[in-house]
Nucleic acid binder design. Structure first.
Lengths: 331, 331
DNA sequence: ATGAAAGCGCTAACAA
DNA sequence: TTGTTAGCGCTTTCAT
């Protein structure tokens, strides 16, 4: 292993003081010859500034924490890609939190941010409560919320019009004459599930459907197996002409289940997913899905965070992403 | 925003010196009453140690860098999950590199590690050359290679028996009487593509097939669209009874393409993928795929790195993952 | 068991 | 433009 090379080594080699080297490194000086000598010394020694020392001195880590529920769901993969892209040209490194599925995990993660290892955090959580909100407001770094449940957030945030997205899907089903719609929702404790349920109830009522709450099934998780499990527990599945799934993974499970039962999608029963992930194009039939633009949201979150880091006094930004129904074969 | 709370604040409140507080924080002292007082002060003030200061002092960041090609490929998502799990109970935080598709990107990333923001790195790269190898050996932190191309690596590494995996798929095709096999490979410059090509040629020859190199097509990328593009350029596709794809994404593209062409999988033409990603279960037909245990590799990489950080003098570990053919409907 | 103090590598204020 | 120096918050040696 090579010798550790610090500002001192470079300064010595170039015959200047460490301050001068520091200035060159940070682009604060314009002197020709000295600058050149220092540059050469840096190259020859392979000097790289010590992040920790800089972080300690300027109280900034040049790192961003991305806090997500889990990486199993392709929607968060897409979001992560967007975030990566958003920070690509910046000086910031990206930290990935562990899986944050429960309130406890979220809280633990947020508290750990007190260690100052990140200059900002992008939080997308399935769960939200007062305790999380309280911790968020004691954080000493900017937060960008992606899909938060907080009422009047004091943070930049990017939400999705869940109700509208669900409504679009329901409307589309109705426009195709499919009125017996099953809503295959995710775990009821999660925030997206609550929002999507609201959207479903509202939309069904607007179509004069009585007691739409009877047409909701909750999967235990946002994944294909959970979808299959729930569906297998529904006695009269063929009373339905359509299934709206709370995400693409559930939709994938639904399609698989229906195909096993020899029910044709979309002929016997139409299926719509939510999130429009990469998966949608690959399923058979290809999946009609409500696009909430996860990758774009990730990129936008990164942008908002960068802007706030640049200028902490900017007014709070709130963006609501308009959903788009991407029509493919399944409905 | 709350006041910044340092060791000093805690020490003052508890009426002790910062050294004592530091010892309590790091679990180095056993005194009853003092310890209690300090603990209370820490709780009351919500003290969290400053990562940068600690990192600077002990020359260790408690961070790990995960350097991957891209997050579009579900195999890296799985690997990332494994890595997350592997570090879950450790003190280390996880950093995610940006997309590292080209040699230049890999080199830039590795060089930046000179800034000491990570105590170790897990590198999975599609490309490898002498320059990368050289930089790796100048790094002052341990490296774990996942799927490296280096001949006699001086690093812990976890590889995959690509040749064997491809061979298993070819053997399986032959055992089902399918001898006209097309190998749909990825970009030829990438390391996995080279290895998989070798495996294909070797295996085909062992089955007395002449000039197997004529049955290889290279997609421009490891994704579904690239697969469709290549396949659409092949005139006499129906001379083949099987397609072996270099990964599941290519296989997904192939299945889609074949379905458009009204060729039945597996009746007209069988398809096998590689990586056995989450996708495999969701495609129609479900995809037979060679499992290289990406998630496990990620977890193992984390384990190796933790062990080496614990004890740098351990002998180098090299593991070759045995592939497993997961048979589903597509072949 | 506890405290005083040095110093990790860097930036920035001040002086020259 | 350049150098000197204090100090960011912490760990650890040495003394008590």
């Amino acid at each position: 292993m090579a010798e550790k090379v610090t500002l001192f080594a470079v300064a010595e080699r170039a015959g200047v003081s460490i301050a001068t080297v520091s200035r060159v490194v940070n682009g604060l000086t314009t002197n020709g010859p000295t600058k050149e000598r220092i540059r050469r010394a840096i190259d020859e020694l392979g000097y790289e500034p010590n992040s920790a020392a800089r972080a300690l001195k300027v109280n900034a880590s040049e790192q961003i924490c991305l806090a997500l529920p889990d990486l199993n769901n392709p929607v968060y993969q897409a979001m992560t890609r967007g975030v990566q892209r958003g920070f690509k040209l910046s000086k910031y490194r990206l930290m990935l939190s562990p899986s944050l599925l429960t309130t406890e995990e979220v809280i633990l993660q947020l508290k750990s941010l007190g260690r100052n290892y990140a200059d900002g955090v992008i939080l997308s959580s399935l769960v939200f409560d007062e305790e999380i909100e309280k911790i968020l407001s004691t954080l000493r770094i900017p937060v960008v919320l992606v899909g938060g449940a907080i009422n009047r957030p004091k943070f930049d945030n990017i939400r999705v019009d869940s109700e509208r997205g669900v409504g679009m899907a329901v409307d589309y089903f109705f426009s195709a004459g499919r009125k017996k719609i099953l809503f295959l929702n995710g775990p009821w404790i999660t925030n997206p599930a609550k929002r999507r349920k609201e959207g479903f109830l509202e939309s069904m009522k607007s179509h004069q459907i009585m007691n739409p709450e009877n047409y909701i099934a909750n999967a235990k998780a946002f994944n294909p197996n959970a979808a299959e499990e729930v569906l297998s527990g529904i006695k009269k599945l063929n009373q339905f002409s359509a299934i709206l799934c709370a995400n693409d993974l559930l939709a994938a499970g639904a399609i698989k289940f229906l195909s096993k039962r020899k029910m044709k999608v979309p002929d016997d029963i139409a299926v719509i997913g939510i999130d429009n992930t990469d998966l949608a194009e690959l399923l058979t039939p290809t999946l009609t899905s409500v696009d909430f633009k996860a990758e774009y949201r990730g990129e936008l979150a990164a942008k908002y965070l960068l802007e706030r880091l640049e200028n902490p006094n900017l007014p709070i930004k709130k963006t609501i992403i308009e959903p788009e129904l991407i029509i493919r074969e399944s409905a």
